[in-house]
């Protein structure tokens, strides 16, 4: 924990916000969209999660310099904001969901572009680009244009292009979405390998709990343009503070005045008649959707208190109870299955 990063009246970072010397420290304010503080040690991978419109892409744009912001960004002990550093002078590597490879250049030329732009001569730039393509396992596709590549291949080229310039800050904006499940898994494993070697700070925007758990050292949860939670992936997954994260890790979270109570969907019992038990652990709800989930059937229901809960039931039970959207049911959970933890870990004021 670097004390110099926390000043005066600011609340201390919850969780291990370890900024050990070089790395990333940023306070980003984009009016109406984002007001967040991010701290990450060199070599670490931060998963940025949150619902749509939470400010994830805004954060990446502000760090890259393509979105106007107030506040400060410091990378590797050097300020990017005082004085403001032009986009092209920031050592960032960007990977977007839709790759953004230059359509008129071959895979090799795409990867060599950043090296050429930074003044490397043609031949060494191309040799280096070929090395990076080889490293990402797409070396034999060097001559292809982006439209001749599959989604997974193109994303590998895009990652090679971002890493080839040896950035201090790697920004990955949902790099796996839009890919087939198998392709995404292979790429996730590949990326984990490269991130382990990566000396700079990597920020990974994702919608998948799996990405956060397998790739990240740190999780930053954004909600409504603010930091809702930070911590290790395990910690955040076990004690989600927002509905969004609870949903991502497949937990139900019910908030009381001072505590959050979480429980897995498998611990929820569904019945048609009002059950016995504490009112604290039972809800009347209306079924919203019913989808297969592994061997079970996953039920999404909205309680009278407008809280969305998920419950797993056996297919037989689902048929027996006639669980169709619109059906009124009772949901119950045993107190022993409920984990209670304080809400105060939130950075929200």
């Amino acid at each position: 924990m670097a004390d110099h990063l926390v000043t005066g009246s600011e609340e201390a970072l919850s969780g291990p916000g370890r900024a050990t010397g070089p790395g990333l420290h940023a306070r980003v304010r984009v009016p109406g969209r984002l007001d967040a503080e991010v701290t990450a040690a060199a070599g670490s991978v931060v998963a940025v999660i949150g619902p749509n419109g939470a400010g994830k892409s805004t954060l990446l744009g502000a760090l890259a310099g393509t979105t106007a912001m107030a506040g400060e960004v410091e990378v590797g002990g050097r300020s990017w904001t005082a004085p403001p550093l032009a986009v092209r002078h920031r050592r960032v590597g960007l990977v977007f969901q839709d790759q953004s490879l230059f359509p008129h250049l071959s895979a090799l030329e795409n990867v060599a572009f950043g090296l050429r732009a930074r003044g490397r001569a043609r031949t060494p730039a191309r040799a280096r680009a070929q090395e990076w393509l080889d490293r990402l396992g797409v070396g034999e596709l060097a001559a292809r244009r982006p439209r001749q590549l599959s989604g997974g291949q193109a994303q590998r080229v895009a990652i090679a292009r971002a890493l080839a310039t040896e950035p201090e800050l790697l920004l990955l904006d949902e790099p796996f979405s839009g890919l087939d499940v198998g392709v995404a898994t292979a790429l996730r494993i590949e990326l984990a390998r490269h991130l382990a070697d990566f000396a700079g700070v990597a920020l990974l925007v994702t919608h998948h709990a799996l990405d956060a758990l397998t790739l990240a050292d740190e999780v930053l949860v954004l909600d409504g343009g603010r930091v809702a939670q930070t911590g290790t992936p395990r910690d955040v997954a076990a004690h989600p503070l927002t509905d969004h994260v609870a949903r991502l890790v497949g937990l139900n979270v019910v908030a009381d005045a001072e505590t959050n109570r979480s429980f897995p969907p498998s611990a929820v019992t569904v019945s048609l008649r009002a059950p016995e038990g504490s009112a604290r652990n039972r809800w009347r709800a209306s079924v919203l959707s019913v989808v297969p989930h592994g061997d079970a059937v996953r039920l999404l229901a909205r309680t009278d208190g407008a809280q969305e809960l998920i419950a797993d039931v056996t297919p037989e039970a689902a048929v027996e109870l006639g669980l169709d959207p619109g059906r009124e049911v009772w949901l119950t959970v045993k107190e022993t299955s409920v984990r209670t933890y304080p809400r105060t870990a939130s950075m929200r004021p």
Partner: peptide
């Protein structure tokens, strides 16, 4: 302007981006 932005993040000056990206596209 999307590809211009990508070119800038890769370190290209506006003139470099114009010659190598904007104009060809």
């Amino acid at each position: 302007e999307r590809y211009d932005v990508v070119a800038a993040t890769l370190g290209a000056t506006r003139w470099h981006a114009f010659r190598r990206v904007t104009l060809p596209l």
